[in-house]
Design a protein around this nucleic acid. Structure first.
Length: 638
RNA sequence: GCUGAUGUGGCUCAGGGGUAGAGCAGCUCACUCGUAAUGAGCAGGUCGGGGGUUCGAAUCCCCCCAUCAGCUCCA
């Protein structure tokens, strides 16, 4: 009998008869592996366990522990979902049903709209399908055959997909029980492999993601290798909900968004303290990195927006107003203002790089459905800066901005990744200029040895950009910092500087933000810290809690003393029990609660309760002050 | 903007054609207390807005508005 050599992940090589399936190989390795096996990766291609091996090669058996295994597992879960839906709602047509980061979804075109109760019914039906343990059977068919099958079944979306498959594509179908789907595969061997399933939510989704197409109903679900992992995942979702900045923002009195101003947040006193602390840090940072601060108007003449190109490229996102008989626009970006500042003087190359920073309040018209707490608003403050420099200084300046942004994210303990966005369809300027600008950004990143992802066509209309996406403590990513290189605006506004040769030349302009939007950044910080801000940011740093009325005077002495040294402190002198005040202080996430009673009063002590560590016992007020002092500045990274 | 859901005191929620309810928070009083909720009393709502049906609408119908979950888009 002919044999083939299969090398396994551990480096061993085994011989098998030609035609041995991946599943049989798994079987021969170990019982345990065979039962966990979902699919195999043979010579870099992921295949069903039933796939027969016909040649020598490298094989890895994939289980739920590998990302690729998980994907297959959840993709199979999506098929089970589709089977259940078609059984309960005959005539429902299928869209697509892929695995996604934490689960899967399937899009359906169904006359009636699904309700949450339907989800429960579907879930039950899915359990029955799992119990029936239908095998996933693969078959390959010709294009004509595939079209005939799906046309017969009225699956117009599938027919559309088939028609768009490349000429040489293998068209495969997968069947489990009575359910048949167009699918490249692979799949787990049978429906019984899926151990823990849950349908999560219901949403509308356009066919193929385009607003122009029909909206289908999307059912999201997730599946795990066992019930415990599923429960753990559901717990994590609860945790994310607990950290929701909209909820915490209200509870902690940081900000509010009212019906009277959709997308226009109100900052409350405690939120303003946080915000002002961030701004102080920002000012110190920018002073240190050689920036000068400016502030430009919120409303400027229409003509200027025409000149900047915003009128042509950004009008649908802008707000307009009239002053007397003239048209004005509310700024959606700060760059034109910075340019006007630049033009108020004649500039020499000796001043370069000229770094003008601005906490600029911009307004953008966002579609109603996209608003989301502080994360997506219609008015926000960009921690903007515009750097005017010589072409020869570009790389150096961009590297400087990269370092500055890195410093900011490190302070808060964020990890991040960067993406490079290139020329969009709707853009200004010549392809050569774009090429040059894009290369400048590439060079800076490469010289810094940074890894980056490229987003073709995702740049701003005036130039390519580097985006910083930071990862918060629960794993969500947010776009915050961006660096954009711009050869267009200096051209449009005819910006010049006097060079070494005494002639006028065109400067290069770099736009950049580090926080991105202060509002969004605050939202991210709230979720990142779950509202328990480090001492330097905390709206109230310490609260004095007198035990009875006879300790009020000493409590006031302590409070006044701390306040006089610049700390944010208050006193809870209500006639409540200590336990009650402690509870409220903990819920307000105040870093330190200072309980004062007879003992403390007699010896100038405070009994410190740390937000996280609990009761630390009594220490002298001076010792406490030293500790608080150390944590009250951003340098401490507390 | 699109699809679906939701909207009842500051907050969390019950009620579902016949005089608006609870808990927490608030206020007052008593208690003066040692590390996550002391007790009693009081006050607080044109039930998101506007139309309609009805003898009567928080409740049924229509139109708006806002919020939530997605889609699309973005800092």
């Amino acid at each position: 009998m002919e044999t083939i050599k299969v090398s396994l992940k551990d480096g061993s090589v085994r011989e098998y008869p030609v035609g041995t399936t991946i599943g049989q190989v798994a079987e021969s390795i170990s019982r345990g592996l065979a039962s966990k096996a979902l699919v195999g990766k043979f010579n870099e291609q992921i295949k069903d366990l039933s796939h027969p091996l016909m040649e020598d090669g490298q094989l890895e058996i994939l289980t739920f522990d590998q990302e690729e295994g998980r994907e297959v597992y959840r993709h199979s879960s999506a098929h089970i979902l589709a089977q259940a839906v078609q059984k309960l709602f005959p005539g429902t047509r299928l869209g697509i049903g892929p695995a996604i980061e934490n689960g899967f979804y399937y899009d359906f075109d169904c006359l009636q709209s699904f309700t949450p109760q339907d989800l429960e019914r579907i879930e039950k039906e899915m359990a029955a399908i799992v119990k029936a343990d239908y095998p996933f059977v693969r078959q390959e068919v010709s294009r004509e055959e595939a079209i005939r099958i799906f046309t017969e079944r009225g699956e117009n979306y599938k027919v559309e997909l088939i028609n768009e498959l490349p000429e040489d594509a293998t068209i495969s179908l997968y069947q489990q029980g009575e359910f048949l789907d167009l699918c490249a595969g692979p799949h787990v061997p049978s429906t019984g492999k899926i151990r823990a399933l849950k349908l999560m939510s219901l949403a509308g989704a356009y066919w193929r993601g385009s607003e122009k197409n029909k909206m289908l109903q999307r059912i999201y679900g997730t599946s795990f290798a066992n019930k415990a992992d599923l429960d753990q995942y559901l717990f994590q979702l609860e945790e994310a909900k607990r950290r929701d900045h909209r909820k915490l923002g209200a509870e902690l009195g940081l900000f509010t968004i009212l019906e009277e101003g959709p997308g226009f947040p109100f900052f409350l006193p405690k939120g303003m303290i946080l915000r002002n602390q961030l701004e102080s840090y920002w000012r110190e940072l920018h002073r240190r990195w050689g920036y000068q601060e400016i502030r430009t108007p919120i409303i400027l003449r229409r003509e200027m927006w025409e000149q900047s190109g915003h009128w042509d490229h950004y009008k649908e996102n802008m707000y307009f107003t009239k002053i007397d008989e003239d048209d004005f626009a509310v700024k959606p970006m700060n760059c034109p203002g910075a340019i006007l500042v630049y033009r108020t003087q004649l500039h020499s190359y000796r001043e370069f790089p000229l770094r003008l920073a601005e906490m600029g309040l911009v307004h953008r018209h966002e579609k109603s459905g996209v608003l989301h707490g502080l994360m997506r608003v219609r008015a926000f403050t960009q921690d903007d800066a515009h750097i005017f420099c010589l072409p020869s200084q570009i790389t150096q300046e961009i590297k400087g901005v990269i370092d500055l942004v890195d410093e900011v994210y490190r302070l808060f303990g964020f990890s991040y990744h960067v993406e490079l966005s290139t020329r969009p369809e709707k853009s200004m300027g010549s392809p050569e200029a774009w090429e040059q600008a894009t290369n400048a950004l590439r060079t800076a990143m490469e010289e810094k040895g940074m890894e980056y992802k490229v987003n073709e066509g995702d740049g701003a209309f005036y130039g390519p950009k580097i985006d910083f996406h930071l990862r918060d403590s629960i794993g969500r990513t947010w776009q915050c910092g961006t660096i954009q290189l711009d050869f267009q605006m200096p051209e449009k506004f005819d910006l010049t500087y006097i060079g070494e040769d005494g002639q006028r030349h065109r400067p290069v302009m770099i736009h950049r933000v580090a926080f991105g939007s202060i509002e969004r950044f605050i939202g991210i910080l709230i979720e990142h810290y779950a509202g328990a801000f480090p001492t330097w940011l905390a709206p109230i740093q310490a609260r004095v809690i007198p035990i009875t009325e006879r300790h009020h005077e000493y409590a006031r002495t302590v409070g006044t003393n701390l306040a006089a040294q610049g700390f944010r402190v208050d006193i809870d002198d209500r006639s409540e029990k200590v336990g009650y005040k402690i509870r409220e202080g903990q819920l307000a996430k105040i870093p330190y609660l200072l309980v004062v009673g007879d003992k403390e009063q007699e010896n100038s002590l405070v009994a410190v309760r740390d937000r996280a560590k609990g009761d630390l016992g009594a220490i002298s007020l001076t010792t406490f002050v030293a500790q608080l002092q150390a944590e009250s500045t951003w340098n401490s990274r507390a």
